[in-house]
Amino acid sequence: MSHTAHIPSHRKPRRSAPKTALRAGVAGGVLSTIAVAGAAGPAQAEPVARTIEMPTITDGLSTAVAASAQATEQVAQNLRTQAQQDEAAASAAKAAKKAKAEAVRKAEAKKKAEAAAKAKAEAALRASRTQARTTLSAPTGGSPASMAVASSSSSSSSSSSSSSATGSAASVVSFVKAQVGDAYVSGGTGPNSWDCSGLVQAAFRTVGVDLPRISQAQSTAGTQVSLSNLQPGDILYWGGAGSAYHVAVYVGGGEFVGAQNSSTGVVQRPLSYDPPSGAIRVL
């Protein structure tokens, strides 16, 4: 007996043939299964997930955002500016409309006041003339004979004042009568429209007499004469001498021709239509 026979052997025990064959068969079956699965190929394989690299979209994004913000701010600023301009224009238009209405109101009030003042002055003037004529025509007593003499004298004076014009006076009378029916226009000097002093000035210019242009100056351009001693060609005036507001030409027969107003134009009327304040004689 060996001296080591009693020591267990350190070597692995040999495997029996049946176990080895069994294990080989199992391993072969597994490998066959794997081979079959591999042969089945992609049809039975799980889908493979691919990672696709997307393009980077953040390139220049900050620049685009900044530009968009700037454009938006500019549009907002433009809208604010336009709103301010519209508001200013509306305010200006409103103020102009208000100022115009106020100016029109003041002009109308002034016009009415002037018309009222003129009417009042004319009424007072006519009343004073009526009173003066009443005083002059009132009987002062005396015998019927003296009254008859006075009546005869008055008739004689009237006849004298209505006598036919001659010479330069006739030319003046003929000129103004020829304009009867023409229009009245303030500042008019002919040939188809006149104001009162423009007509008188043009009539006397035909005989070489250059009268002032306005009524006030024409009322002192000659010798003052009585209304009871008028002659054709005398200048009649309404208002005071030197402050007259209207003039005309006495044409005889107790009538005058003058450019009265825009409603009547140039007319021939009796003295009673609008009794004058005084008269001057130039010729």
Rank of each mutant, 00 (worst) to 15 (best):
Q216N: 03
A165L: 13
H3M: 07
D210H: 13
S226M: 01
V172H: 05
K118V: 08
A35H: 00
A145S: 07
L125F: 10
V249D: 04
A5Q: 14
R15E: 15
S16L: 09
Q231D: 15
I7Q: 13
A95P: 03
T4Y: 15
P276E: 02
S146V: 12
P275C: 00
W238C: 15
V207P: 13
Q231H: 11
V26A: 11
Q216A: 11
A113L: 10
N261S: 05
A221S: 10
L230A: 00
Q260E: 11
R133L: 13
Q231F: 06
R50Q: 14
L125D: 15
K94R: 14
G253T: 10
S157N: 07
G242H: 00
D210F: 14
D59V: 10
T220V: 15
S168H: 11
S226Q: 03
K100C: 04
T81N: 14
R129V: 01
S219H: 02
M1A: 10
L136K: 03
P55W: 00
S160Q: 07
S62Q: 12
K94E: 14
T220N: 01
L136R: 06
V36G: 02
A138F: 00
T166I: 13
W238L: 15
S197G: 13
G278A: 00
S146H: 11
E122T: 08
P275E: 01
K112R: 09
A39K: 00
A99G: 09
D59A: 08
R15H: 07
Q131F: 05
